[in-house]
């Protein structure tokens, strides 16, 4: 991590955290992606002046014990905006962020409980008028108020982006794994409660929520008109529609044909 001397002095980072849910047991836990967001925030803060530049923020219930597992990563305090379970978190968060004006906001991509629509970074960005960088793997450098960010793409690829501070980023699973949570510091950490006015999420209260049903497997329907076609569909080997075969061509021509196809598909970088 390379930080510019001028900007790192007053670089304020906020990591937004939520309560995770273990995929098998369903117990509350530290969420995978939010843990990574805190980890990235801690690394950024440590590269700068110190940990006090990082605020870890949660909107919800301050009594939730899963929040302690974030604090166990070496945080002195976790700030919690006290909300009822049915409340909408976006407007109190926006209010808080407008008041404190951080430089970087880090979130997970999708929450592990609730609606998990992944809309929070986008809604905050829209309300604050900031750019949003989805699915980042790392922040490479911050120089003169411009951050160079590595974005995680499917198939293990990375894309480099530059974005001017302040910005919101959601942290992908490709980012560095969160450090271990220690029990003692977790218990000693301070839960700074804040009261905030909030509205009930009325739209959501009309929805019905059930444990996930197993999705039906897609059937392979053969729409053959004759018995011969059906037989062929059932027995034939999967085959391409007949490709180009280069036989009795010179080596140069053959290699050129392969090269052209690779170039056309855009796999040569």
């Amino acid at each position: 991590m390379q930080l510019d001397a001028n900007t790192s002095m007053d670089l304020k980072i906020v990591s937004l955290i939520s309560v995770g849910k273990h995929p098998t047991s369903g117990r509350a836990r530290r969420a995978e992606q939010d843990g990574r967001a805190v980890e990235l925030g801690l690394t950024l803060a440590e590269a700068g002046r110190g940990k006090q530049n990082l605020t870890v923020l949660h909107a919800g219930d301050s009594q939730q014990s899963a929040l302690r597992s974030y604090a166990g990563m070496g945080l002195e305090s976790v700030r919690v905006i006290q909300l009822r379970e049915s409340a909408d978190a976006v407007s109190p968060l926006t209010e808080y962020l407008r008041k404190h004006v951080p430089d970087i906001i880090l979130t997970g991509v999708r929450a592990e409980s609730g609606e998990s629509s992944g809309m929070v970074p986008y809604l905050l960005a829209e309300k604050l008028g900031w750019p949003v960088v989805p699915r980042i793997a790392n922040i490479v450098s911050i120089k003169e108020g411009v951050a160079e960010v590595l974005q995680a793409l499917p198939r293990g690829q990375r894309r480099a982006l530059t974005v001017r501070l302040p910005f919101i980023a959601s942290v992908d699973n490709a980012a560095a794994e969160p450090r271990q949570s220690a029990f003692g510091p977790a218990n000693r950490a301070l839960m700074e409660q804040q009261q905030a006015g909030s509205e009930t999420d009325t739209v959501r209260s009309e929805w019905s929520e059930l444990p996930a049903r197993k999705r039906p497997k897609r059937l392979k329907v053969v729409k053959a008109k004759t018995a011969a076609d059906r037989f062929k569909a059932a027995t034939a080997k999967p085959q391409g529609s007949g490709g180009k075969v280069l036989k009795d061509k010179t080596v140069t021509e053959q290699a050129q044909a392969i090269f052209d196809l690779l170039l056309e598909e855009g796999v040569l970088r």
């Binding site: 080997k237 391409g240 080596v251 050129q256 196809l261």
Partner: peptide, 18 residues
Amino acid sequence: KRADLSTIGDAEKVLDEL
């Protein structure tokens, strides 16, 4: 039969050229 593009020949030479 499956391939979209097949070249019939010595792999070593084709790879060299590639």
